[in-house]
Design a protein around this nucleic acid. Structure first.
Length: 722
RNA sequence: UGCGGGGUGGAGCAGUUGGUAGCUCGUUGGGCUCAUAACCCAAAGGUCAUCGGUUCGAGUCCGGUCCCCGCUACCA
């Protein structure tokens, strides 16, 4: 079938600081599971590896915030995530965790190997340190002014305005996002992976994979073309895998060094565990391989170091460079490992038109879905696969979920199976009739039928799961058409022999569907196999057969495989989402901090609005020259949402001020408006207009603005405010 | 404002290396009644955002313009 003898398939380690939502499933775990189930169905040797990613700064922050320990945080989410995967039928061979002993050991050894080979560049650098929080600051937790484009909210690792990759020390006027304080520079030693010197090898590696998806290649190439930089593989932090160098304290491995090694340690753990299982019982089939291999001790290595193993990483688009560049670089530097053969990264799934957000509770949580839609895992699997963000971001809507469930799963697939089984019970008491004479239509049907396994295979192998699923549905459509064209319920009155053949063939289609749907709809497949009493050891290639159900074979009583989802259910889900939108509005003023490793930066709020800012001296206050003024002219600044250009009479002069009030006031309404104006604020160009001062505005919790003006009319322009 | 992704029949999408424009849903008409008012057939409906270029031929390649979405920016 291919040049590979076995497969190591990994799915991105989810970060253990929150539960899982549909975006996780659609983007990564579901396609991976479909792929793996397909491989198993083909009899391939495959290990499907995943686990919780439990280190890194955000978890320590969450623990601090909740007044608990990082270990308790990860214990909680490891359980929640593991259960959710299990209940959705994501068929990992192992779901491990990076806080485990074996992981720490593996990561430590990996680091040591590189260390002893002299791979790392050791460098003492000055890192920012937040004295108030008593910790070094990861780049992401420092904001400041970008040296390249003057954006004042650039992060320490990257300026999102101009896209440049930065070092935190490049930032002008840095601030800690924990305390808002200016951090101090402190010397610290770290170990860098020299991506720059490894670049030629990485270039060659990426070049050898022209077949990768365009989104993946595009991102890799943009990294490579701008030149790779050495990247620190250690961090100053307590939570994580300790840097295994003598005399080094308070340092751990960088979470992106540690996490992909989690795939390796999980594989080891799988083989260790299955050895124990095999000692106590016969194994359940999944572990058969371990029984057969003589070199049990090194079994895991076959999955990581043998050229005949195909390593495939399923990830979301946010992980591309780590899996395509940094992890391969680590593996190259180590020397004994194979490299990823494919990295089918998906884009993101949106929900009802908005980006899914953990912190804003804009999500369909898997654990909640399981409670609200019992035994409907396959309905969600179906919708998410049919709508998977394979080539671009896609949108999940509840209406679409309902439509796909009702019009496709129920009406096409479920209905075909149901009418076939009902007729079989009705005419033959559930015994498979013998096919007698084939007419032309039957031959055509059989010919069509035989094409499906290959068609679906081909799509899956190219990671085109939407297409594969559509083909599966086409087989059910073929079945419906066959029944409609041949009308056994009419012919039964005139030609009983013909009906036998029709029903036999329809039943063979049902049996084929059972096999072919398994990667996509495993729960339904299992249910259906029981219903038609089908041997469950059948493999993918058996799906070309037309004798899966032999004449006289007794099928069991049938029941419906899918049920309709009614409007009220959908309405209540939409309502629930709207409520969380409303909740967000009231939450928005509470302090918030970046909690998700990869989440967008918007939740960061540096000014904790409900708390007073730090004390200042009277002198500090006295530096400000605030006056009463009057607006003489006002006009919108073109091509902006919020900006208004104002001409102000300050009593001392007339000056131009640009102010962000356009959302709340119309220019003509505010001519003559008395305002408070800070007149000695350094001028600044905004949209190429020099703004010479700042209008003071009061802002309520909804972000609405209003002017601050003197309460007596005889206070004239130029009156000072103190 | 910059970056990214898009603009294909009412809706959501597919269109691989340029060669008669497809799919699912919806609509309309018909058939069937075994089936969860499900299924099957047929029809209507698109100058593939727009302008220009390359070509024997462009949804597909090149350039310009407009519009939409996401992120980002502007609030001094």
């Amino acid at each position: 079938m291919s040049k590979f003898k076995r497969y190591t398939v990994t799915a991105a380690l989810p970060y253990a600081n929150g539960p899982l939502h549909i975006g996780h499933l659609a983007g990564c775990y579901l396609p991976a599971d479909i792929y793996v189930r397909y491989l198993r169905s083909n009899g391939e040797l495959v290990k499907f590896i995943c686990g919780s990613d439990e280190h890194g700064v955000p978890i320590t922050i969450k623990a601090k915030k909740e007044g608990t320990t990082p270990q308790k945080v990860v214990d909680k989410y490891h359980k929640i995530m593991g259960d959710a995967f299990d209940e959705f039928g994501i068929s990992f061979d192992i779901y491990a965790r990076t806080s485990s002993k074996i992981h720490h050991k593996t990561a430590t050894e990996f680091f040591n190997t590189l260390y002893q080979k002299g791979v790392f560049k050791e460098e003492i650098t000055e890192q920012y340190f937040d004295e108030k929080a008593n910790q070094f600051l990861a780049d992401r937790y420092i904001v400041g002014t970008c040296p390249k484009c003057a954006n004042e909210n650039a992060y320490g690792d990257q300026c999102e305005s101009c896209g440049s990759t930065l070092n935190a020390t490049d930032l002008i006027n840095p601030k800690s996002t924990f305390s808002g304080e200016k951090p101090i520079l402190k010397k610290t030693k770290n170990w860098f992976l020299p991506l720059d010197t490894l670049q030629p090898q990485i270039d060659a590696y990426i070049d050898s994979h022209k077949e990768w998806k365009t989104n993946v290649l595009g991102q890799c190439k943009s990294w490579l073309s701008s030149g790779l930089q050495p990247r620190a593989m250690t961090r100053d932090l307590d939570w994580g895998v300790k840097v295994p160098i003598e005399g080094v304290e308070g340092k751990v491995l960088y979470v992106w060094f540690d996490a992909p090694i989690g795939y390796i340690s999980a594989t080891k753990e799988f083989f260790n565990t299955s050895k124990e299982i095999n000692n106590t019982n016969e194994g359940d089939g999944a572990n058969l391989i371990s029984n057969l291999k003589p070199h049990e001790k090194e079994e895991w290595e076959l999955y990581w170091k043998d050229k005949e193993t195909k390593l495939v990483h399923f990830i979301g688009k946010d992980n591309i460079v780590f899996h395509c560049i940094i992890f391969p670089a680590m593996l190259m530097a180590e020397g004994s490992y194979i490299l990823p053969e494919a990295v089918p990264a998906n884009e993101f799934l949106n929900l009802e038109g908005n980006k899914i957000s953990t912190s804003r509770n804009w999500a369909v949580w898997l654990h909640e879905y399981l409670l609200e839609f019992t035994n409907k895992q396959d309905a969600l699997r179906y919708t998410l696969c049919a709508n998977a963000p394979e080539t671009k971001d896609n949108d999940f809507t509840w209406k679409d979920f309902q439509a796909k469930n009702n019009n496709e799963l129920v009406a096409i697939l479920g209905n075909f199976i149901n009418r076939t089984l009902v007729l079989t019970h009705k005419y033959y008491d559930g015994k498979v009739p013998e096919a007698l004479e084939f007419i032309k239509a039957d031959i055509l049907l059989l010919k069509e039928l035989s094409k499906f396994p290959e068609k679906i295979s081909s799509s899956i192998k190219q990671y085109r799961f939407r297409e594969a699923l559509a083909e599966l549905m086409n087989l059910a459509r073929l079945g419906n058409k066959f029944l409609a064209d041949n009308e056994p319920w009419i012919i039964i009155k005139t030609d009983k022999n013909r009906v036998q053949t029709i029903m036999n063939l329809s039943l063979q289609i049902v049996a084929n569907l059972t096999i072919l749907m398994e990667p996509f709809l495993p729960f339904t497949s299992k249910k259906l196999a029981t219903m038609i009493n089908l041997n469950n050891n059948l493999k993918w290639n058996d799906a070309t057969r037309t004798d899966l159900l032999l004449p006289g074979h007794q099928i069991n009583p049938s029941s419906l495989l899918f049920e309709k989802v009614e409007d009220e259910i959908i309405d209540s889900q939409i309502l629930k989402l709207n409520n969380s939108k409303i909740d967000n509005q009231s939450e928005i003023n509470k302090s918030n901090i970046l909690l998700n490793k990869n989440e967008d930066a918007s939740p960061i709020v540096i000014n904790f609005k409900n708390e007073a800012k730090a004390d200042i001296s009277f002198d500090d206050f006295n530096k400000m020259d605030i006056r009463v003024g009057t607006i003489l002219e006002a006009e919108r600044v073109p091509k902006t949402d919020k900006l208004m250009k104002l001409l102000i009479d300050t009593g001392i002069d007339k000056r131009t001020v640009v102010s962000g009030i356009a959302a709340y006031y119309k220019p003509e309404e505010i001519i003559g408006q008395k305002v408070s104006i800070l007149v000695n604020l350094a001028p600044r160009k905004i949209k190429n207009i020099e703004s010479q001062g700042m209008i003071l505005m009061a802002e309520n919790s909804n972000g609405e603005l209003c002017f601050v003006e003197p309460s007596k009319l005889n206070i004239n322009n130029g009156a000072s405010i103190k």
